[in-house]
Design a protein around this nucleic acid. Sequence first.
DNA 1: CAGCGTGTTGAGGA
DNA 2: TTCCTCAACACGCT
Length: 276
Amino acid sequence: MPELPEVQTVINTLMHSGLLCQPIVDVKVYKPKLLKNSNPVNFKAFLINERINNIQRKGKFLIFDLSHQKTLLVHLRMEGKLFYETIDSTIPTTHLRIEFFFKNKHVLRYYDSRIFGTFHIYTNQAHWQDQQLTKLGLDPLEDGFNGKYLATKVASSNRAIKTAILDQTNVAGIGNIYADEILFLSKIKPTRKASELSKQDFNNIAKFAKQILLKAIKYGGTTIATYKADANHSGQFQAKLLVHTKKGLPCKYCGTKIVKIKVNGRGTYYCPNCQR
DNA sequence: CAGCGTGTTGAGGA
DNA sequence: TTCCTCAACACGCT
């Protein structure tokens, strides 16, 4: 369920795993469809003997900085997962899509039941010129993300505020779960037109976006953290959700039943009393 | 069996 | 231009 906090959790986990600076000695691609600007042959040739020196994030994208000015850009989409494991660990091969083998007998495994993830490769830092990244709005944790920024992006839009903050060209990193949580804390009904919101509303959205995303990162995201131990689901943040998935349950603040509607085709939960 | 879904793109149309 | 809906991606789950 990778939104910004889950992607950051993946990065935090990998950065502390011992994978950094290990030479890649082999790559096996079981689902070539995942490779969007290469094929298994040149993808492998591109990666062999390179090292992952750093991992950055932009919105929900993972940016692997390799040696020789090369870059691997990964998007996990709905179901993508990355685990760094010992090479002889006995693991279920269901949904195993790509393996990166390292010199130290470890392997980075990519799992993706739906095969929606994307892998792009670049030389000479060319990824920064790719529209995928250039079109992204500010990420809520970046400098300059505040109510004023949000207002310049969406205050003239007649779209529902939820749709506006899910649009990655306005705000990078927010997904369906956190959009509901942010609007609940901001006391704004998800269907309100962005153009109807006040300066204070935008300030609140920006404030709570930062607050909730940081908190979710602290708790290791919603599903990633326990996956290794469990292969099941339910990360630590799952327990902290206030409205998302809470249909029919009482609002934590006023007791009114949470309702579920569709906004722009996405399941949307809100409190009809608190959120106006 | 039908419907849904944590993400995103692209087509087609108003 | 803007924004909406629908389909597609491919599969597990209810």
